[in-house]
Computed example of a mutant assay.
Amino acid sequence: WNQAFEAAGFQDAYRVEMMPEGADPMDVRYNVIQWVHRGTRGWSYGSSVRDPRTGEIIKGHVSLGSLRVRQDYMIAEAILAPYMAGQEVPEEMLEFALARLRQLSAHEVGHTLGLSHNYIASTNNRASVMDYPHPYIQLKEDGTFDLSEAYDVNIGEWDKVAITFGYAEYPEGTDEKAAGEQVLLDALADGIRFISDQDARPQGGAHAYAHLRDSGESPTAELNRVMEVRQKALEQFGQNNIPEGTPLAMMEQTLVPLYLFHRYQVEAAVKLLGGFDYNYAVRGDGQSALTPVSAADQQAALEALLATLKPEHLAVPESILDQLPPMPLAFGRNRESFKGRTSVMFDPLVAAENGATATL
């Protein structure tokens, strides 16, 4: 966040240090990032203590849930098939998971600074850490995967705008209201946009480009690209996706995040159908208020969505099914498994049902 404060005219105004020995995390004098270990998954939080009289932020407090890193590690296992016999686990798995934690930390700290979610940032070159990102995994020409750009490592352009608007200090005599409005007008002129929760979270949302956990300027093009990544990873899925000495049945849990790897991009593409591109326009700011998605773009989105329902995309490959025995003693299915109707056996039809439901 020092990048954003420097853009607002401050030098060394923001830094992170280890908490002094003996300090209490609840002490209002300390802004705190704390690591919370849970038995199950849960949200991470960025909250603050504020002066009820003025709204001034007195203390920021971030809680990071440890199991968030587990999900990314499982995605890396599913994509990379990294457990080759006689070879060390690639370092990029750890780097991938830690990159997500860094992004998450920056996101939650942003909340403590007063920033809301910006769910259109993913369509604008990752313009904000206040978006919910999906890992941007690339399929290279040689058929291997590149995770090096999975998550951004910098504060976004919108974040700099928001900090400048909220925190910048001006010389005495400056019309601060007019200066703040000019910051926003300059951002609009640069194509930096802001759309938040009420237009991105609801299933019935109408905004065509504000989504959670999506990527890319075009939801349709990104869905097609993500499906290619998913297909290639499914083709190579097998025993190299789990560590040596792990029951083969546990491949089922690694399979789930891969099989559903496209689900959030599906949600993004769906909202192009009957969708609109709109802004929080204010009279006099020059923004376009409302534009329906073109018929051609809706048709392209529909074709991409229907492609996810093709049998070859819903069927679990035979090469995987042949390696999935029932769970052994002391192991079992849990909330990270597909529920089935075939007793102890893996149920490929339920997997297909989940895949189809993601689209329908």
Rank of each mutant, 00 (worst) to 15 (best):
K232Q: 15
G284T: 12
L273Y: 10
G274S: 08
I75A: 10
A233V: 04
A200V: 07
N124D: 14
N2R: 05
Q198C: 06
G39P: 00
A307K: 08
A81K: 11
R53E: 15
Y45H: 15
S116L: 11
P20E: 13
T40F: 12
I155L: 14
V36Q: 14
P90V: 05
Q265N: 10
P82A: 06
I320D: 07
Y167P: 00
G274C: 08
A249W: 11
T254P: 00
T291V: 02
R41G: 13
D72R: 00
S148N: 14
Q198G: 01
H207G: 04
L115I: 10
A358R: 06
A168K: 02
Q236K: 03
W158I: 07
L309I: 00
N154H: 13
D152Y: 14
V282R: 11
V28P: 04
M130Y: 04
R70Y: 02
M26C: 00
V16M: 12
N154M: 15
D27W: 01
E181H: 05
T308S: 03
S44N: 09
L260K: 09
R53K: 14
A127L: 08
P325N: 06
I57F: 03
G245R: 15
G156K: 04
E235K: 01
K140C: 06
A4M: 05
D131H: 15
Q203N: 11
S288Y: 14
L98D: 04
E169F: 05
E157V: 02
R38A: 07
G216V: 14
G46C: 07
Y119I: 02
A4Q: 11
E336L: 06
R230L: 06
L104W: 03
R193Q: 08
A233E: 11
L98Q: 08
S288E: 15
V226C: 03
